[in-house]
Design a protein around this nucleic acid. Structure first.
Lengths: 198, 198
DNA sequence: TACGATATCGTACATTTTGTTCGATTATTA
DNA sequence: TAATAATCGAACAAAATGTACGATATCGTA
């Protein structure tokens, strides 16, 4: 018998812990944080912490799950037609990063957010991959699809990181426009088979 | 009076520690490693470890310094003329990664190698940046240079990561050729203004 | 070969962190 | 109000951290 009120109580506790973690990441970086720091900041008992999470890492990824879920819901919302020249919906990633600046900063700025960076990279990778797959069907490519998606995901994540960390004064749409400008010509060549290197 | 022999002795100790660290990173990931693990594996006394390094991180970055130095020496060795179509010497990065597969794997595979990943990214970033700067002089760009270099560095590092971790059966030259094919059209557009290949 | 310098060893130690246990306390629901 | 469930917080063992120091091993040189 789960009651809805107690669920909310649990949620409050977990959220307090997650918020404390984000704050601490911004202050001292993920690796230097101890469980003690987190529960002190969140005003949560030691045993309560371990009742919910295995350790620091577990808390971090659990927080990232919710965040990534929000991302999946949003990506692809704007335009469903790939005919408008947007083969990949990079715009959604920039917008999402813009809406969650604090979290992104916490994740990316600290050297310890790397676990997250890896998961994020995979997430972006899959998003791009599915878009390309539906566009190509089973067509043969001069460049393997995983190569393309890793290329794009790496470039995209790196740009978001730079954009957020350095507070670059472009908005999400400008960032996306430049990203598309950089990426599209190469993608077109790779897909259509124009090899014009050299 | 520094004697050369004792220098070598120190070097041996430090190298043993670094090797132990790389082994352990491959086995259990950087964050889970303790100083105790390292000195046990390396057969080095506890006090000796702290005589050389402040902590785990210090050992890691010191190892990375040597590695990055080797990279700087090698990058740009092959072709010094940018006229052969290679605006960026990505080839050197792929070759270097190929020659140091174990180290790269250790650095990239573990979630904890992120400190290194960050430094590596900056390194790649600067390499690419200097090449572009010497090519452009002070010319105005429709897309800011840091945007381009972050885009390229991110894509390149992501591909190296994928290539090494998944043991993708391409050689360094093939990887580079595909990277150039993906990146060059976008770079040309960004630098020359818009449209057209020559 | 034997000496002197110095790098390393390894134990001991105080401190911090970890993860667990358990009874007391507080909040929520019926 | 009474039952239920989540949280608190103190106590604990185990492990890791970083320091100190005397003993030992190594290496160049006399």
């Amino acid at each position: 018998m789960e009651s809805k009120k107690t669920d909310r109580r649990i949620q409050r506790t977990q959220e307090a812990l997650r918020n404390a973690l984000v704050e601490l990441i911004l202050e001292k970086g993920y690796p230097k944080i101890t469980v003690q720091n987190i529960i002190d900041r969140a005003n949560v008992g030691r045993s309560t912490f371990y009742a919910h999470f295995l350790d620091k890492d577990d808390l971090l990824v659990s927080g990232f799950r919710a965040w990534a879920f929000d991302l999946s819901r949003n990506v692809g919302d704007g335009e469903n037609t790939p005919d408008d020249g947007h083969i990949i919906h990079s715009q959604d990633f920039f917008l999402h990063a813009d809406h969650h600046r604090d979290l992104y900063r916490a994740m990316l700025e600290s050297g310890g957010g790397n676990l997250i960076l890896k998961v994020g990279q995979e997430h972006i990778h899959h998003q791009i991959e599915s878009h390309l797959v539906e566009l190509l069907g089973g067509k043969e490519l001069p460049i393997p699809l995983p190569f393309i998606t890793n290329y794009l995901a790496g470039a995209l994540l790196s740009l978001i990181k730079w954009w957020i960390e350095e507070d670059i004064p472009f908005d999400a749409l400008q960032m996306d426009a430049m990203f598309q400008a950089m990426a599209m010509p190469g993608i077109r060549d790779a897909i259509m088979g124009n090899s014009n290197t050299r």
